[in-house]
Amino acid sequence: MIVKICGIQSVETGRMAVEAGADMIGFVFADSRRKVSPEQAARIGKELPAQVKKVGVFVNEPIESLLDIVETAGLDYIQLHGDETPDYVKAINKPVIKAFSVASEDDLKQLADYQCEYYLLDSPAEAYRGGNGTAFDWSLASSEAISREKLFLAGGLHSENVQQAIGEVSPVGVDVSSGVETEGQKDPIKIKQFITAAKRGQ
């Protein structure tokens, strides 16, 4: 089970996530209370082991700007949470994780249009695209047409429900941000509990 801890804003939190067993860490470059600069992300990334993949989270970023940020921050993956088109995805020279807000089965039909490394199923957007701490109906993701090897699950996950979510959806990875926070800050105990729960039974 690949575990991504998103919304990392400091070297200390990045190291904490890695020591707890995170496989990926996410830097948010879109409007969010967790937003970081490309330079911040680069500084944090340089302090982490090379095998831990660095993911940049973007929403409708102009392609030229996105590619500049990717270079400056030293990103391994690009996670897109906006209305990016299949052609936009093709223009990126890094592996892409394309996020889709899931409110009904119809929302899953879009996946077939995108050629990307992973598909991330998330809750419908609220104030921000992603990171809202609410779950969607996981049974919607049970379609056999979706390749489990390419599927990440996000939205309202925490240590108490992640095993149930994995059991229902069988994703290759899970992505969490608010579910490992206390009063808006990453909580080392919750990070450890989440990763332990997500990787249980591997």
Rank of each mutant, 00 (worst) to 15 (best):
S101E: 13
G155M: 01
V18D: 10
S65H: 14
R200M: 14
D137S: 12
G173M: 04
S143M: 13
A125T: 12
S142D: 14
P86R: 02
E39H: 07
L66T: 01
F152Y: 11
Y88C: 10
V28K: 04
V169Y: 09
V169I: 10
A42W: 06
Q110I: 12
Q193Y: 10
F194V: 05
F27T: 06
Y119T: 07
Q115A: 14
K94I: 08
G74D: 02
T196R: 12
G133M: 08
L140E: 08
E126M: 14
I63H: 11
E64L: 14
I44P: 04
D68I: 13
T134S: 13
Y128H: 14
A127T: 15
N132S: 15
V169F: 09
Y114R: 08
G45D: 05
G21E: 07
F29A: 01
G82S: 03
I189R: 12
K190W: 01
L67M: 15
G82N: 02
Q79H: 08
Y77A: 06
D122K: 07
S142P: 08
K94E: 09
R148L: 06
I166A: 03
F136L: 07
V3H: 09
K46M: 09
G133D: 07
K54Y: 05
V174H: 01
L111C: 10
F100E: 07
A112E: 15
A42C: 12
K4L: 04
V28N: 05
A91N: 14
S37Q: 01
D68C: 13
R148Y: 04
G156E: 05
V172W: 09
V180M: 05
I189Q: 12
Q185G: 10
G21C: 09
Q193I: 08
F27E: 03
G130S: 03
A197W: 02
N161C: 05
A17K: 04
R34Q: 08
D87M: 11
A30D: 03
A22N: 06
A22K: 01
G45R: 05
S65E: 14
D106I: 11
Q115V: 13
R148A: 07
K4Y: 04
L111F: 05
E47R: 06
G131F: 03
K186G: 02
S123P: 09
K46A: 14
I191C: 10
A145H: 13
G184E: 09
Q185H: 14
L157P: 04
